[in-house]
Design a protein around this nucleic acid. Structure first.
Length: 872
RNA sequence: GGGCGGUUAGCUCAGCGGUAGAGCACUCGCCUUACAAGCGAGGGGUCACUGGUUCGAACCCAGUACCGCCCACCA
């Protein structure tokens, strides 16, 4: 057996080698691999979807990135998932459309460009509306170009011919059509309401564009009369109070309802009204009412026909005549308190006082509730339909726990303020006549003479809400729309479940006759750093996908993200993980290289005389295919990645390749076919996760054109072989046990030792050559004298370590094992002696425990014998 | 103020009723001719806490404590 490792073990004929071995460099270099394939894929049209195809469609619309900058690592996660899904769907035989595009991102992009202008000391007003919008378009071209470049680097298999932008001609038309349709159906209206106002951006914001945070404020109580004290954190708004409200059944104030009090500092008299909204248990039970500057107060005002008195302008500057006029709201607040204190009207001050304060999600400025005339969507019927579609399963949300959040939101949704006092966006298609006439103008209509268009633009989420069908040609009934709507799955972060998903549901159901925009919503989490911390520029833990692509490769970057991607869960990543993923790609690379060096080929195995090792790896492969399908069907990318990682590394590389070396050395040429078959399937399984390296290797292995259009592996039950799996499992156990012995004895891995194997009648009877080769065990010589005897299962291995054995180390090891075996035996015996366990536990569990007890008993006997032998 | 989720090896996380797992990190030994981005072996956890259900609990139930996220018009 010595010869097995002494000689070159690959007696492969020369012709075969020269014919079938393509050039694969010894070292995997992602940059080389990844520049080769992408443009070819695009040129071959693999990503181009044909609406005329007879295949079942599979559609994903890319959540359009904002044109505010470039893609971050979170986009990379989002894209990796979608690419994995579409690539697999394509391999499964679907007509696959992954539609790319970008979002104009109204307020966000306008702010970015305004900041750029500010660096030159200019504002948008210096340019004027038209020139400013022109300027934003230039920015869009630049930012958009960057994003497209990043998508190519990532390997996104999108249909470039169908790339869209929310402000391109077709989509703008869809926006106008939708607005008009809603208007005609009475689902958009204009009204004066209290809305969230950003005094810096100078625009209205919707509820979801406001972020709340616990800020420190000051709650002051102000004496309005001898009997009435009110509390407020916004003292400056008292200038606009037009009433004091108390609860109708609050006896303390019953006699005051209907009377008036004098509003301090102003000399105005305001009424005391009774309103259910007031909580008599909170504070003094009396509330100041400022209808123009607080949404609740606005409602109270409406119920009691109170006047609204605006005391602040759009920048948050006090406009009320008097000493405070011209002060900013945050200057006016302490000034008003000081003035009240001077009059002895401040009753009590409580500080610090933490309360929730709204901030503009774009610029963090404290939002000011403001009374203004805006456009709204009446969301009632739309939101109901959006909720129902998920409730009745027409659309399902993954993971299902997230659905509750969705319901909470759509079931209790305020009307949606859609007008924005911005310049960048879709201008509201409403014209006003000289006498206040209002006309909503459809895309093909012309406004009446002398009418003036509304200056505002629509909330950016209005156009985003149309994305799943506007991109397919709506309102035209295009072949694409007929074929690819509804989309198969929407992949996005849980953070925009409300912002975006709910809006697409509302609009999709409404515009497409009750057909929801997607069958499945697959939510992923946020990308975080290795400590689970949010990535932020100020913290310096931001990962730039391009940086990783350069250093580890796009495949490794993607694989790292997918390895962490459980449904709805955040993904923690680090450079160590990226390096690990790169190493994995390298592992696959070298495994394939090895196979090719040995003439691996894809072909029929019919009639081949397969060994147990061959049958084992083929059997395992079938299980892996089945498990991978289950994981991917459930959007469990972490599970799928882990599964394939371990199959490839632990089973294929660590065991099968080693066993294959032996077989090849023995001239079992069919081994090349098994290698080919296993790697072929493995690479196809891996392709959705690591598209570039799998393409490169698969082409080298098969000579076929592209793995992109290869078929997805299908588990073949004929290859299931529990017998072979058991045999190789036993072999692994023997090999591992003896390796452990060798390692404990300090035997160098390469050092050969003589051994006598007792395999007759054992579960690995036919594996002597493999066991000897893997363990560097030579045949016993005539002078053989065993210094150690190991028993593993039904196998005995006697080894002559020729004096190299460390008796003390061996005793220690045996004693440790013995202790473990005794503990094991005691545990099992405890169970078997437990009447209730025996009575109630299922039979299979009892059998298992019994087997454990037997095994432990055998181990104890064996180890005791070995220890005794050692003492001699 | 409501709701949801988490607490398992040094770190990030799987496991979700029947012998505690992975990757990385760590220790020891190896350049064994696919791969040192590698190979082999090993150490390391009263599965947050307290009760309960069960023959049996990391897993189910109740409560507690921390942590995270989302929603919210209590001045």
């Amino acid at each position: 057996m010595d010869t097995l490792h002494g000689a070159f073990p690959f007696p492969v004929s020369l012709e075969l080698v020269t014919v079938t071995t393509p050039e694969l460099p010894t070292q995997y270099t992602p940059a080389d691999v990844e520049t080769r394939s992408y443009e070819r894929w695009v040129a071959e049209g693999y990503f181009h979807a044909d609406p005329g195809s007879s295949r079942t469609p599979y559609t994903i619309v890319l959540p359009p990135p904002n044109v505010t900058g470039s893609l971050h690592i979170g986009h990379a996660l989002d894209h990796s998932i979608q690419d994995a899904l579409t690539r697999r769907a394509r391999m499964l035989g679907h007509e696959t459309l992954w539609l790319p595009g970008m979002d104009h991102a109204g307020i966000a992009t306008q702010n970015v460009v305004e900041r750029e202008l500010a660096k030159q000391g200019r504002s948008r007003h210096d340019l004027g509306r038209e020139a400013f919008v022109e300027r934003v378009w230039e920015w869009k071209e630049e930012s958009g170009g960057k994003i497209l470049g990043q998508m190519r680097k990532l390997g996104d298999g999108v249909d470039w011919a169908r790339e869209r932008f929310t402000m391109d001609e077709g989509l703008s038309r869809a926006v106008l059509t939708m607005f008009k349709k809603l208007y005609d159906d009475g689902l958009v209206y204009r009204a004066e309401r209290i809305i969230n106002w950003c005094p810096r951006c100078l625009t209205a914001l919707s509820d979801i564009e406001v972020e709340h945070s616990e800020d420190e404020g000051e709650l002051v109580s102000i004496r309005y009369s001898d009997e009435i004290v009110v509390a407020t954190t916004r003292a400056e708004t008292m200038l606009g109070d037009t009433a004091v409200a108390v609860h109708p059944s609050d006896e303390r104030y019953a006699h005051l309802i209907g009377t008036t009090v004098e509003l301090p500092l102003t000399g105005r008299r305001i009424p005391v009204v009774a309103d259910e909204h007031v909580d008599p248990a909170f504070g003094t039970g009396a509330v100041k009412v400022t209808p123009a500057h607080d949404p609740n107060d606005f409602e109270i005002g409406r119920r009691h026909s109170l006047p609204s008195m605006t005391v602040m302008d759009e920048r948050g500057v006090i406009t009320a005549h008097g000493p405070f006029e011209g002060l900013d709201r945050f200057e006016a607040r302490p000034a008003v308190v000081a003035a009240l204190r001077a009059e002895g009207l401040i009753v009590e001050e409580k500080r610090p006082y933490l309360h929730s304060v709204g901030h503009c999600s774009r610029c963090k400025t404290v939002v000011e509730p403001r009374l203004s005339l805006q456009w709204f969507v009446n969301v009632g019927p739309l939101a109901k339909a959006a909720g129902d579609a998920v409730r009745d399963g027409r659309t399902s949300i993954h993971p299902p726990e997230m659905a509750k959040r969705y319901f909470d939101w759509v079931d209790d949704m305020h009307d949606w303020c859609i007008s924005r006092q911005l310049w960048w966006g879709h201008r509201i298609p409403v014209w006003y006549g000289p006498n206040g006439e209002v006309v909503c103008v459809g895309p093909d209509e012309t406004p009446p003479e002398g009418y003036v268009q509304d200056p505002d633009v629509l909330d950016t989420w209005f156009s985003s809400g149309l994305w799943p069908f506007s991109t397919l040609g709506w309102p035209e009934r295009t072949p694409e729309l007929e074929r690819f709507y509804p989309t198969s799955v929407l992949v996005t972060g849980y953070d925009i479940l409300f912002f975006w998903v709910a809006r697409m549901m509302m609009f999709g159901l409404y515009a497409m006759d009750g057909e929801p925009p997607f069958r499945v919503v697959a939510l992923h989490g946020m990308v975080r750093d290795q400590y689970g911390k949010k990535m932020s520029k100020s913290f310096g833990n931001v990962v730039d996908p391009l940086d990783w692509i350069e250093r580890f490769g796009a495949d490794a970057t993607r694989f790292t993200l997918l390895r962490g991607a459980n449904p709805g869960a955040d993904v923690a990543i680090s450079e160590e993980w990226a390096a690990g993923s790169r190493n994995f790609c390298n592992k696959i690379w070298n495994a394939t290289r090895f196979a090719l060096m040995n003439g691996a080929a894809v072909g029929s195995l019919d009639g081949a005389d397969l060994t147990a090792a061959d049958r084992w790896i083929l059997s395992r492969l079938q299980s892996v295919i089945t498990a991978a399908d289950a994981a991917l069907d459930g959007y469990e990318f972490a599970k799928a990645s882990e599964l394939l990682y371990h199959f490839a590394w632990d089973e294929v590389c660590d065991w099968y390749l080693e066993l294959a070396k032996i077989q090849l050395g023995e001239g079992l040429d069919h081994t090349r076919l098994v290698l080919g078959q296993v790697l072929d399937a493995l690479l196809r399984l891996l392709h959705p996760l690591v598209p570039f390296v799998s393409e490169e290797l698969w082409r080298a292995l098969t000579g076929a054109e592209s793995i992109v259009v290869a078929a997805w592996p299908k588990a073949d039950p004929r290859y299931r072989d529990p017998g072979a799996e058991a045999e190789i499992a036993a072999l692994q156990e023997v090999v591992t046990e003896v390796r452990r012995f060798r390692s404990d004895q300090g035997l160098k891995p390469g050092q050969k030792v003589a051994a006598r194997l007792g395999l007759a009648g054992s579960s690995v009877e036919g594996q002597e050559r493999a066991i000897r080769a893997l363990l560097r065990l030579t045949e016993p010589a005539e002078t053989f004298s065993a210094t150690a005897r190991l028993t593993v299962g039904d196998v005995t291995v006697e080894i002559d370590t020729a004096g190299a054995i460390d008796v003390e180390a061996e005793r220690k090891r045996l004693e440790k094992d013995l202790a473990a075996a005794r503990k094991e035996a005691a545990q099992a015996a405890g169970k078997l002696g437990n009447e209730q366990f025996m009575a109630k536990a299922p039979a299979e569990v009892v059998t298992k425990v019994r087997a454990r007890a037997d095994q432990a008993a055998a181990d104890i006997a064996r180890l005791e014998a070995q220890l005794a032998a050692l003492k001699v």
